[in-house]
Write a protein that binds this DNA or RNA. Structure first.
Lengths: 295, 295
DNA sequence: CAATAAATTCCCATATTTAGAAATTTCATG
DNA sequence: CATGAAATTTCTAAATATGGGAATTTATTG
């Protein structure tokens, strides 16, 4: 197949070991956790330390994540044009609503939050950038899925609609109905489908090709997320999402008419890197392939 | 005498290639830039792509930084207790001053900004987290250096006091005088020493051991940085820095009395790693022993 | 649509890394 | 300050990655 250098995997295994919350490791702890042979592991540790990806606590001598990651990680963010494009708008949204603004994308079957502006209010709901959630049970995810290809949606469904709260949407039909609702309104709402106290309104962001690229919106603690307030929040979110879309070169689309579903469906499955990309003069046609296999 | 696996360096060389601003690379571009043998390079690229550190643009097929970096990079941030400890305080500072709040640490001879809360005002001065500046010519740097060991300070001086603007402090004596001033007042000010339009007030943050751990403060566009306003800003900054320090377990210290110099001097010898930066450096082979000139 | 150029993968002898244990150093404890 | 335990480095045969070119695939052009 394709053998990849084990040293690389060792390196990232070590770095990713921090993902379950532990913030300091001794060499022995790495060893126990990862089963890398000790001599090899020490070589890797030294390499990572030299490069600034690991550092040793001055006091304890234990390993911690280095700041080099912050540097490169932030690069990844800056280089994402959608983040740069929306920077000012997100801040404006926050100023206007005083709520936490977040920008999320669909990665795999999950939502990955890539940008956060925290609410200035003391009580706030925040997911740190880099955080992932299931897509089918958060507003950002539903906002994206509503305009994604059938293929992506069924992949999400196949991955399982696990129940988190009693509000969680757990059946295919309910989810499809919900997504249709989202398309009708142009935004998605979450009344605690993943966490009892999680609330949010998100709207989809489209790029120049008409595909849904992200979802932008706000996460609000239940205390401030009332039925009365929702319409105005939703309006802000929708307006800002459209503004970002247009800056990305998207043509404004009417909320319920053009579903976006078909365009997206045409370039559904994409694990093969040999996609027909040559068509710079050939824009993705809306092939009439409306296989509504739902129901 | 410690050979580190080249595969690891290849991997990070590739990832760090993005540091000079280019956000898409073809395999050939990596090859030209890094001189890694093609077959090896492809193996590395595949490994990085598999792990999510690189991804290929759907359109162009070119390589871009993946979001995995965001995840792990943010981990590094969350796991830095000073960031967590100060989270609320920084937000409060921002609410109170409406200016950009930043938290910086000294890494090597440079200041590394690790946390930023952007001003809500349209005109604002922001350094993205992960950004580095020289330490001797920014407020954050001076706030830290003022309480650092002689050893650290002379290392900064040896690294060179380059002139950026006509305000830049470029001589040893001037710098030492400035740092003494900082110690007297408990905060540092920058009136454009690095960039003509850069202004800031920063105060040092100390940890439980009494060492200076960071600097916190605000970066302000010149239009809003008046002599009249400075005292109140400085007061906010000092108060918040002290609050963070005390949360870190520091004993409150009088502004001019304890220098912190001696405590810090005792553990002067620190890993010298700021040799390599800016990405395009091939790893310099580490010599077996360090020239200890500290005595 | 064919021909050409470029990009990517495959192949294999050679050099390097790896794993495991032993030797050494560092740290904790009486 | 000596002793024992743990952590880290060193050492070597064996396994594996590496690099360079050839073969293949993919893009570009007339």
């Amino acid at each position: 197949m394709k053998p990849t250098p084990p040293a690389i995997h060792n390196a990232f295994d070590i770095l990713e070991a921090f993902q379950d919350g532990q913030r300091e490791f001794t060499a022995q702890e790495f060893h126990k956790k990862l089963n890398i042979s000790l001599s090899t592991q020490y070589r890797v540790l030294h390499a990572l330390e030299d490069r600034g990806y690991l550092r040793r606590d001055t006091q304890t001598g234990r390993y911690r994540l280095g700041f080099k990651f912050l540097q490169v990680g932030n690069l990844a963010l800056e280089q994402e044009e959608i983040v740069e494009t929306s920077r000012g708008i997100l801040q404006d949204m926050c100023d206007e609503t005083k709520e936490t603004i977040q920008l999320g994308i669909l990665e795999g079957v999950e939502v990955l939050y890539i940008k956060t502006i925290e609410s200035p209010l003391p009580l706030r709901y925040v997911l740190q950038p880099g955080f992932r959630t299931p897509s089918y049970c958060v507003a950002a995810g539903k906002a994206i899925l509503a305009y994604e290809s059938e293929d992506k949606i069924s992949r999400v469904i196949r991955a399982g609609l696990r129940r988190f709260t009693k509000k969680t949407i757990c059946t295919t039909t309910a989810l499809k109905r919900e997504l249709a609702d989202v398309r009708r309104g142009g935004y998605a709402v979450n009344w605690g489908e993943m966490r009892k106290s999680g609330r949010g309104v998100y709207a989809p962001v489209f790029d120049y090709s008409g595909r849904v690229a992200a979802a932008v919106g706000l996460s609000v603690p239940p205390e401030r997320f009332t039925h009365k307030r929702l319409p105005s929040l939703a309006e802000v979110v929708r307006r800002c999402a459209e503004e970002i879309s247009s800056r990305l070169g998207a043509v404004p689309l009417k909320t319920s008419a053009t579903t976006g579903e078909n365009e997206a469906a045409s370039l559904a499955e994409a694990p093969i890197r040999s996609k027909q990309r040559g068509g710079s003069n050939r824009k993705p046609e809306k092939s009439g392939r409306k296989n509504d296999t739902s129901g």
